[in-house]
Nucleic acid binder design. Structure first.
Lengths: 106, 106
DNA sequence: AGCCTATTTCGAATTTCTTCGAAATTCGGT
DNA sequence: ACCGAATTTCGAAGAAATTCGAAATAGGCT
């Protein structure tokens, strides 16, 4: 069920710390950012960051790649695009252009 | 801080029950749906639905209007558009078109 | 092999979410 | 003024999130 997946991703982004984190990664672009830098940027405990990062990774929104001793984190754009697509499709049907409302009342 | 607001809205949508609920409302369009019908659609306790509805309303994603004894709920499209806009702007910067990464490291 | 740095896992405390049923409330009709 | 239907508020219980520090692990360097 796609909805479940979307809900998980939205939940992952629905926390100020994780949203900040994700935004930093998006802005870092292709280059990504090492965990340590993220920690400095956010000013939170390493273990806390690791936890949030893990949640973001579980939903596919972020991915990691080792580079020597540091782990580079990167935003996974296609996943976000899918999510935004879901919101636009399923949930953001334009009120004006979509006089639907039909949809088997019940 | 806009980010806090966005996080709250994402959190509100980041729960399967609320996302289903919101989707139903979006599909109901202008007409909206009364709380009772939503309850039947979702098959949850009235008090639980009321709680979720409240959360959605707090973030501005849903609004209500009385019609005699029933309360009609409607999705608030502009809010969702803003949210999607935020994701697109702040978070979904196209990796290719945005070689940013600058953003004062550390 | 030993060490150092980078990051995760563990254990734990506090807070918040999710859910329900019962009781209270709000509104329109009799 | 009362009744009945539609919703919300209250109270409560169990599950999950958030956060931290300390200890464990991973990887490269000497």
């Amino acid at each position: 069920m796609k909805l479940e997946q979307a809900a998980k991703q939205l939940e992952a982004l629905g926390n100020p710390t994780r949203l900040k984190l994700y935004r930093i990664l998006v802005r870092a672009g292709e280059a990504g950012k090492p965990v340590g830098t993220l920690q400095e940027n956010l000013g939170i405990a390493a273990s806390t960051l690791s936890h949030h990062l893990h949640r973001l990774i579980l939903t596919g929104l972020v991915s990691q790649e080792r580079q020597a001793t540091t782990l580079i984190c990167r935003a996974n754009y296609p996943i976000m695009r899918d999510l935004v697509g879901f919101l636009a499709d399923e949930c953001c049907a334009d009120a004006a252009s979509n006089p639907a409302a039909g949809e088997a009342a019940a």
